[in-house]
Design a protein around this nucleic acid. Structure first.
Lengths: 115, 115
DNA sequence: ACACTATATAACTATACAATTATATAGTCA
DNA sequence: TGACTATATAATTGTATAGTTATATAGTGT
């Protein structure tokens, strides 16, 4: 029950920060249905190659995605699918008070998150 | 299943951003056991009065806390307790791969989150 | 009205970081 | 080897924001 120590707080804050950019959310969203390489993610997200690469680098550092190079391509996939539970929770909370409810709720809430 | 529109992504990112600062997490943590006024939160968090006030202002804007002034004091409380579920999820994910596991897990994981 | 307390805000500085452009690295195939 | 493709990184610029100090606002009691 004691106050969490500062190091722990920084870790958690860091994790949330990784999720605090629209472009990264778009990338994570694109990875919901399986791994994709940088080119695919660049096209889907509509960002520049350099920008997406940098975001992927950050997401990898923060352990949100995993990197695997095959041939001349590099494939990324979600490291822990519970990240989508986070997004669902946030969407739920925002949806509760926003007119955007429908737009938002269908974002990350796909078919089934096993748990 | 279509890509979430940009406005929705920005809302979600904004919400995560509110959670992406250690001092704000500290404040939210301090509010777990009920409302507190600015003076109390300032003391608990160890920040300056001005700084805490600014963070509270932001948390209010982003609808994470609710504000109620009574007399010369202003009391803040959690707007939606599901915010702690978010923190638990993050702690769980971090805890899974960090040595800090114990430190972190006991942070936001208190007695009972009704659901 | 005045003094006193609690909270908010303004002005400022320093830092973090998103996006861009240009370039480097690394793998593949001829 | 050299040409080609895919990805990463460096250098730069602009913007956002955390924290500080000083000041303003608002409520209370005399």
């Amino acid at each position: 029950m004691s106050a969490p120590d500062d190091r722990a707080l920084e870790y958690v804050a860091r994790y949330f920060k990784a999720l605090a950019e629209p472009m990264r959310l778009k990338v994570l969203n694109a990875l919901q249905d399986g791994e994709k390489n940088v080119g695919q993610l660049t096209e889907i997200s509509g960002g520049s190659q350099a920008n997406i690469s940098k975001h992927l680098s950050l997401l990898t550092q923060y352990n949100l995605v995993e990197r695997e190079s095959r041939g001349t391509n590099v494939y990324y996939k979600i490291a822990d699918p519970r990240v989508y539970d986070l997004c669902e929770l946030v969407c739920g909370q925002i949806g509760n008070r926003m007119t955007l409810e429908n737009d938002i709720k269908k974002m990350f809430v796909t078919t089934n998150h096993v748990r």
